[in-house]
């Protein structure tokens, strides 16, 4: 069976639960009093997808503003990016849209984008409607799920979906139509970088 190493990064505002999602996925545990990440932390998990082993090299980035400029190092070379927002905080969804813009401009061309609306266990204090988020995700051909790292909802599904959308071989990434083709979006006005 072939083993593929897939770099995956998590992006999103501080406190939305990026590290908790990774912990749930890798360790199947949850700690409500987790410390803010510094820079980024790294974990791996290998899963089977069809006749391949996918070893996810997960870079869980810090959401704090002072680390914002470091993000390119983590999405550089990534096969997928998981952008996380908190369904109970409207502003984290705006931050998410900024991340999508940044990935469009500077991210790898065929990166698979997944949007995770975390903390779906807190439906009572919801601020972002599931439909709004789903429509937005569809408009950019991104994976969309609402997750709860606390109650282990949709965490594995999120990564399975990523495996499914990863182009079949590294050597010919354009052959699969499942990738997230940021550069081909007609709505994108080209901007030169820097």
């Amino acid at each position: 069976m072939a083993l593929r190493e897939l770099k995956v990064c998590l992006l999103g505002d501080t406190g939305v639960g990026k590290s908790s999602i990774v912990w749930r996925f890798v360790e199947d545990s949850f700690d409500p009093n987790i410390n803010p990440t510094i820079g980024a932390s790294f974990m791996t998990k290998t899963v089977q997808y069809q006749n391949e082993l996918h070893k996810f090299l997960i870079w869980d980035t810090a959401g704090q503003e002072r680390f914002r400029a470091l993000a390119p190092m983590y999405y550089r070379g990534s096969a997928a990016a998981i952008i996380v927002y908190d369904i109970t905080k409207e502003e984290t969804f705006s931050t998410l849209k900024n991340w999508v813009k940044e990935l469009r401009q500077h991210g790898p061309p065929n990166i698979v984008v997944a949007i995770a609306g975390n903390k779906c266990d807190l439906n009572d204090v919801r601020e972002v409607m599931e439909k709004d988020a789903k429509d937005y995700a569809d408009s950019i051909h991104a994976i969309f799920v609402e997750t709860s790292a606390k109650n282990a909802i949709n965490i594995n599904e999120l990564f399975i979906e990523i495996s499914r959308r990863i182009p079949l071989t590294d050597t010919n990434p354009s052959s699969s139509g499942k990738g997230f083709k940021l550069r081909r979006q007609p709505s994108v006005t080209k901007r030169s970088c820097c």
């Binding site: 770099k7 990064c9 510094i38 820079g39 980024a40 932390s41 790294f42 090299l57 870079w59 810090a62 002072r66 680390f67 400029a69 470091l70 190092m73 983590y74 550089r76 070379g77």
Partner: peptide, 30 residues
């Protein structure tokens, strides 16, 4: 912030044990 992040990466590295293949994550690269 870069230095802080890089040092924090190093502080998560496995110890330099002779004879083992080590994987050291540093700023988005292994």
């Amino acid at each position: 912030p870069f230095l802080e992040a890089a040092c924090s990466d190093v502080d998560r590295w496995p110890p330099p044990v002779p004879g083992k293949t080590l994987i050291l994550p540093i700023m988005g690269v292994l």
